Simulated assay, not measured.
Amino acid sequence: MSLRVVSGGYDHTIRLWDAVTGTNDQTLQFNESQVNQVQFSLDGRLVAVCGNPRVCFYDIQSGSTSPVLSLEYHRNNVSQLVWSESGPFAITCSEDTWLCEWDMRASEPLRSCKSDGCLSGVVYGNRKDECFTCDYGGSIKIWSLENKEVLARLVFGDQEILSGLVFDPLHHLVASIGNSGYGYLFRVETEEEEKESTSMKDEGSMSNQTDDGYFSRVTKLRCSKRYVLKARFNRDASLLVSAGDDGNIRVWGDEKVADRYQEQRWQQSRLVGKHQKWAWDCLFTRDTRYVFSASSDKRICLWDIETGDLMKEYKGHQKAITSIDTFPTTTDND
Rank of each mutant, 00 (worst) to 15 (best):
190 T>W: 01
72 E>L: 13
34 Q>V: 11
114 K>N: 07
298 K>E: 12
278 W>A: 09
200 M>S: 10
296 S>L: 06
86 S>C: 10
150 V>R: 02
290 Y>F: 10
127 R>A: 15
87 G>H: 04
287 D>L: 13
260 R>N: 08
330 T>E: 15
123 V>N: 09
127 R>C: 12
13 T>F: 14
103 D>Y: 05
320 A>V: 03
196 E>G: 01
11 D>H: 08
72 E>R: 13
37 Q>N: 05
33 S>A: 14
169 P>M: 12
48 A>N: 02
312 K>Q: 15
327 F>G: 05
171 H>K: 04
11 D>K: 07
226 R>E: 15
280 W>Q: 07
130 E>G: 04
193 E>I: 00
287 D>S: 12
66 S>Q: 12
284 F>S: 02
49 V>F: 09
116 D>F: 11
239 L>E: 08
40 F>A: 03
2 S>E: 13
156 F>H: 06
201 K>P: 01
326 T>G: 07
210 T>W: 10
161 I>V: 11
287 D>N: 15
231 A>H: 01
153 R>I: 08
42 L>Q: 08
144 S>M: 05
309 D>Q: 11
253 G>F: 03
33 S>I: 07
274 K>E: 14
173 L>C: 05
119 L>P: 00
245 D>N: 12
10 Y>C: 13
154 L>V: 02
168 D>E: 13
94 S>W: 11
288 T>D: 15
331 T>Y: 11
251 V>C: 12
22 G>L: 11
19 A>V: 07
162 L>K: 01
17 W>Q: 09
27 T>D: 10
312 K>P: 01
311 M>F: 03
233 F>H: 03
194 E>V: 09
177 I>E: 06
282 C>P: 02
99 L>R: 03
312 K>S: 14
108 E>V: 11
119 L>W: 06
174 V>W: 00
203 E>Y: 07
155 V>I: 10
279 A>W: 00
13 T>A: 13
151 L>F: 09
243 A>F: 05
143 W>C: 08
284 F>E: 07
248 N>W: 04
300 I>T: 06
261 Y>H: 01
241 V>N: 04
133 T>R: 03
151 L>D: 06
282 C>S: 13
113 C>V: 12
97 T>C: 15
194 E>M: 14
275 H>G: 08
64 S>Y: 06
311 M>G: 00
136 Y>S: 12
4 R>W: 14
266 W>G: 02
44 G>I: 03
216 S>T: 06
42 L>R: 11
155 V>F: 14
237 A>L: 07
248 N>Y: 06
140 I>L: 15
254 D>T: 00
39 Q>T: 07
195 K>I: 09
321 I>W: 08
206 M>I: 13
235 R>H: 13
101 E>A: 15
19 A>S: 14
252 W>N: 03
273 G>Q: 03
118 C>V: 03
